[in-house]
Design a protein around this nucleic acid. Structure first.
Lengths: 339, 339
DNA sequence: CTGAAAGCGCTTACAG
DNA sequence: CTGAAAGCGCTTACAG
C-alpha cells in the first residue's frame, strides 16, 4: 500500500511473476495487446501493493508523446488573460494533457522561450501572447509542432488561428455610438501594436468614416486601470470633450469612468458614453455597469483546444482557422436613445 | 540552420566527428567534465548547423531531474488566485523550472490528481488550493516529493508552509472597527471551510470579544461579487443593520458595497463601514476604494519558490515554515475617527 | 580530456 | 496472449 516514486514495472513484474512487458501492457491504456483477465488482475494487485505508477517521462521518451501541451503567456497580464489561462489550463487537463506554462516576460528573448518549448517535447502548443506570437508560431510549425494561435490571425498557410472578430466588434461599437447620436468621438488604444488591438481600431474607424465621422480623438496608454484614469483626466481637460469614448479594454474603460466621476461634473452616459472591450467580470459590477464587447472566452478556449487536438491526433492535417463572433453588451455606461 | 525536433546528439556527434558522450558534455550545463575549447567549438557549430536542442525528457529520465515543478490550483478561482498563478508561474521559470499545472476541479477526485503529479516526475510541487491541500501534501511527502503549501499552515512535521498571518489580520480588522467606534458588527465568511478563512474569522472574533463585543452578525456565501451583493441586500433588510462589516474577501466586499449603494440610502463609510481581504487591484479602484488587508503576494510567492528550491536542492532538509505579516490598508470605505 | 558502454523506465515489433 | 530484446535520447561511471 505504501506508494513509492521509485517502484518500476520491473519490480511489479517480479512480484507478479510475469514479464516486464506484461506489466507495461496492463498499465498502458493505449496498449493494443490484450492481457488475459486473470493475469491482469494479478499484475494490478502487485502494482497496488507496491504503489506503482507508470513513469510518464519514460513513456514519453519512447512513445514520442508526453501528454503535455505548452501554453505560452505574456507577463504581466490583466484580468482578461488571467482568466483565460486558468480556463485553458483546466480544459487541457480535461482532454488528458497537462499544461506546461511558458511565460514570455516583457523584455525576454523570444528565441529562448521557443527553444524551451521545443526541448520539453510537448505534444503541441497554444500561444496566447499576441505580441510576438506569429514569429513564434512560424518556428514551432517549422519544427512540426502542432500549434494554435489564440486570438490572433495570421494569413500564412499552416498556422492555425482561433480568434474573435475584432474588426467587426470595432464596427459594432461605432454603430452604437452613431445610432445614439454621438458625433464627437474618442478612441483609446493600447500603446503597443498587437493584432487584436489594430483590428478593433480599424473596424471602428472604418465604420465611423462610413457615417461621415472622420475626426476622432485618439489616445493611447498601457493596459491598466491607472493608465485609463490618466487618459480620462486628459480627456476632460480638453477644450473639446468627446461625448463618446471607445476604450480598447474594460480595465482602461473603468479607469476612464472613475476619472470622469471623480474629477468632473460630467454625467455618464448623459454627457459622455463609455464603451469597453472584453466583458471581464468587473464590467457588470454595478459601480461600472459598462457597455462592452463580450468576447466569447469559453468558445474561444474550446475551439482552440479542439483545434490543437485535431492537429496532434492528425484528425486534421490542414491548418484550422476560425473567426468567432462577438456580441455587444449594452449596460448603463451608454445611452439607449438618440439624445 | 534549419532546426528539427528529431535531431539527436548522435547526429551532432557524427557531423562533428566526436563521440556522442562529448556532445552530451558540451550541451549539458551541469556536466562536470570539461571539454577542450576547440572541440567544444566544433560541436557547438555542428549543433547549430543541425538545429540541435537537447531532449529534456530524455535527460530527465536518466538524471532524475525534469526541471518541472507541479503547481496545483483549484478551479474555479477568483482574481486573487488568478494573479498568484501567473506570478508563481513566472517566478518558477525565472528559477529555471517550468511549471506544470494541475487543476483540481470542484468535484474532482483528489487522488487522481496526486497520482498525476507523481507520474509526471516533477522535481517538486506547490499546492495553492487550500481545500484539500493537507491530504495531498501528506501523500506527496510520503513519496519524497519536495512540497510547499501555499497560504496554508499545517502543524505536521515535514510539510513546508508559507502563509500570511490570517489570524492576526482578523485581529487588525477588529481593532480598526473598535477604534473607529463600531459596536454592531457583521462578518461575512466563505461558505466552505478552509484554513485561511477560519483563521481570519477566529482572529476577528477573539479580538472583538476582548473589547466586549460578543454578538456578531454572521453570514456566509460564495467567493464571488454576486454572492456578496446578495448578502449585502440581506444585511440592509435587517431590523438591526450593522455599522461595520468585515468580508472574507475583496470580491465579496465589493458586492456588498454595490448592494448598499444601489439599494439603500446608507452612506459608506458614515453609516456603514466595509472591510475586505486580499487587496486585489480592484480594491484601490476609485469606485470602491476599499479598506482591506493587504496580502503580500509577491513575498509569499518569493518565499514559497525559495523554500521549494531549498527542498529540491537539499539546501534544507527540515520543513520550512514561514508566517508572513500582512498590513491593513485604510481607504475610504471606513471612517478615520470615532464617530 | 575523450570514448565505449551501461542504464534510466518505459513501449513495441518480433517470435513463439 | 506472453516474453526476450531492442531502442527512445540522454547521463555518467569507468578506462584510457
Amino acid at each position: 500500500m505504501k506508494s513509492n516514486r521509485s517502484v518500476t514495472s520491473k519490480d511489479v513484474a517480479k512480484l507478479a511473476g510475469v514479464s516486464q512487458s506484461t506489466v507495461s501492457r496492463v498499465f498502458n491504456p493505449n496498449s493494443n495487446r490484450e492481457v488475459k483477465p486473470d493475469i491482469k488482475e494479478i499484475v494490478l494487485d502487485a502494482g497496488k501493493k507496491l504503489g506503482y505508477k507508470p513513469n510518464i517521462i519514460a513513456r514519453g521518451l519512447v512513445s514520442k508523446k508526453t501528454n503535455m501541451v505548452g501554453v505560452v503567456v505574456a507577463n504581466p497580464i490583466g484580468p482578461f488573460y488571467s482568466k483565460i489561462i486558468t480556463e485553458l489550463t483546466s480544459k487541457l487537463q480535461q482532454n488528458g494533457a497537462q499544461p506546461l506554462i511558458f511565460t514570455l516576460e516583457d523584455q525576454e528573448d523570444i528565441q529562448k522561450i521557443i527553444d524551451k518549448v521545443l526541448q520539453y517535447q510537448v505534444d503541441g502548443v497554444i500561444i496566447t501572447s499576441s505580441a510576438l506570437s506569429v514569429e513564434m508560431a512560424d518556428e514551432c510549425i517549422e519544427n512540426d509542432l502542432p500549434t494554435v494561435l489564440f486570438n490572433v490571425y495570421k494569413n500564412h498557410n499552416k498556422i492555425s488561428c482561433i480568434y474573435s472578430d475584432n474588426r467587426e466588434s470595432g464596427r459594432m461599437v461605432a454603430k452604437l455610438l452613431v445610432d445614439t447620436g454621438h458625433k464627437n468621438i474618442a478612441h483609446i488604444t493600447y500603446k503597443k501594436q498587437a493584432f487584436t488591438i489594430v483590428e478593433r481600431k480599424q473596424g471602428f474607424y472604418e465604420e465611423l468614416k462610413k457615417h461621415g465621422i472622420e475626426y476622432i480623438i485618439e489616445e493611447s496608454c498601457d493596459y491598466t486601470y491607472e493608465a485609463g484614469y490618466e487618459v480620462g483626466l486628459k480627456l476632460i481637460q480638453k477644450k473639446n470633450i468627446p461625448d463618446g469614448v471607445f476604450c480598447v479594454s474594460d480595465v482602461i474603460a473603468m479607469g476612464v469612468i472613475d476619472a470622469i466621476k471623480n474629477e468632473s461634473d460630467l454625467k455618464i452616459p448623459e454627457d459622455i458614453a463609455i464603451i469597453g472591450f472584453d466583458d471581464i467580470p468587473q464590467a457588470s459590477w454595478k459601480s461600472y455597469d459598462l457597455t462592452t464587447i463580450h468576447q466569447p472566452v469559453e468558445l474561444l478556449i474550446d475551439k482552440s483546444v479542439d483545434a490543437l487536438f485535431k492537429l496532434i491526433n492528425k484528425t486534421s492535417t490542414e491548418d484550422i482557422i476560425e473567426k468567432i463572433s462577438t456580441e455587444i453588451v449594452i449596460r448603463q455606461s451608454t445611452r439607449n436613445i438618440k439624445k
